[in-house]
Nucleic acid binder design. Structure first.
Lengths: 238, 238
DNA sequence: CACATCTCTTGAACATGTTCAAGTTGAGCG
DNA sequence: CGCTCAACTTGAACATGTTCAAGAGATGTG
């Protein structure tokens, strides 16, 4: 009992590796190489051996830093999330009406992802599996998800729209859910330049805007309550 | 030019193999064995070698009848579709109100799939890939999809609900889309016995019922038109 | 029956994601 | 400087989906 034990197992996230400078560099190298090859050849066509060879490391080394081939995608994921945020802020700074704010943010999201449409379609497969860490609903994606919802909170809170306070509270998450739907549609969209997705956005936004306004109408009050109650009910448990 | 050429390459589906009695038998044997093992051990844990061995054939033989491991799932798919139809008819025969008809059909769908929940979650991954023949939107799934939509057409047409004729036309497909959403929710539902999905159904059905009724309201007429126009717009092209 | 042709079957070989026991490197410590 | 230990690296070995050239069996034809 002579040595000073370095701050023993504190509670919290499942024990990250210390990761020194050299390791971090290798990790980045592998990630960069992988994303480049994914873009150049596609996801399925890029083998782990190819990534390792191109990066000049052993294949086992890639597995030291990434649990699996799928985990490499998380990097792509995070990067686009940031890009969307940046693009969104541009728009949100200039516009105060709810509808154009929402429309702008949605189009910006598609803009950011557009270069990766074909590649996204193949990796979407991974994201869809509920147990996958790539799933937008997974615990691992939680930070990225929160960040995405925050964008939509900005859309709502920064607008001059008057709406029911309870609806206001739920709206960001609902809009994010809608955004997931748009992404789903986009992934399946085979029209040139995914213009059907653009039309979907242009058509759906005024509709949402209208519904949100109507939500203050007397006749619709009970329906709104019913919707909010449903959300509440479904959320409980797990 | 003496022989009678057997009816040469007619246009149409991509040339089915003639498939004689022996072949059909082997095909069934492989499919049965595969589905049994999937149920017993799970999809990922069942190897093609195991299926072949258990069925008493060579592994290559399985590939003679099925293009890939994923293609084996189509059998499961078709089977449950039929089961859902049967269960739905039971309910639709007894009930004339729209809401309980819809509610019954949705619960029946979950009932039919419930035994496969854990297994469905893993194979759902395959279905999500747009290019996969298993995707509910794929050309290969077209018959199954049409059959599923037909159930919802029954739900609507057999009910005594009065609704806008244009909405009536679109409603079956919209309900099917909603059903796909329920399935998506169900796949991700980790609550015991997937009771959150049950609650989602019980909560959403009255809401839909209400919205459908409200759709005849004067104030909502323009909104309804807008929804229908959106559907129209998005559908165009491909 | 002999031959041709098509269906069906085989299993070894291949490609690729993943694991692991063994080694190397380098920072901290006395 | 020499020791220790954790971080890092290696590449062969493994598991499993898939392919394919070769053959066996059945069916029709002259």
């Amino acid at each position: 009992m002579t040595g000073v034990t370095t701050a023993a197992a504190e509670p919290g996230p499942p024990a990250e590796k210390p990761r020194r400078a050299r390791g971090e560099q290798t990790r980045q190298l592998i990630l960069e190489t992988a994303l480049r090859l994914f873009r150049e050849r596609g996801y399925a066509e890029t083998t782990m051996r190819a990534i390792a060879k191109e990066a000049g490391v052993a294949v086992g080394n890639a597995y030291y830093y990434f649990d699996s081939k799928e985990h490499l995608i998380q990097g792509f994921y995070d990067r686009n999330q940031v890009a969307h945020r940046v693009a969104a802020e541009q728009i949100l700074a200039d516009e105060k009406e709810l509808a154009p704010r929402l429309r702008g943010v949605l189009h910006a999201g598609i803009d950011v992802n557009a270069p990766y449409h074909s590649f996204a379609a193949t990796f979407f497969k991974s994201a869809a599996e509920p147990s996958s860490p790539l799933s937008p609903f997974s615990r691992e994606s939680s930070p990225a998800r929160e960040a995405a919802i925050a964008i939509f909170r900005d859309v709502v809170d920064g607008s001059n729209a008057k709406l029911d306070p309870e609806l206001r509270k739920e709206l960001p998450e609902l809009l994010w859910l809608g955004w997931m739907g748009v992404i789903l549609f986009w992934v399946y969209d085979k029209s040139p330049d995914q213009r059907r997705t653009r039309r979907l956005i242009d058509g759906a936004v005024p509709l949402i805007d209208r519904l949100v306004s109507l939500s203050r109408l007397r006749v619709l009050r009970p329906a709104l309550r019913q919707v909010l109650a449903l959300i509440e009910t479904v959320r409980k448990d797990d």
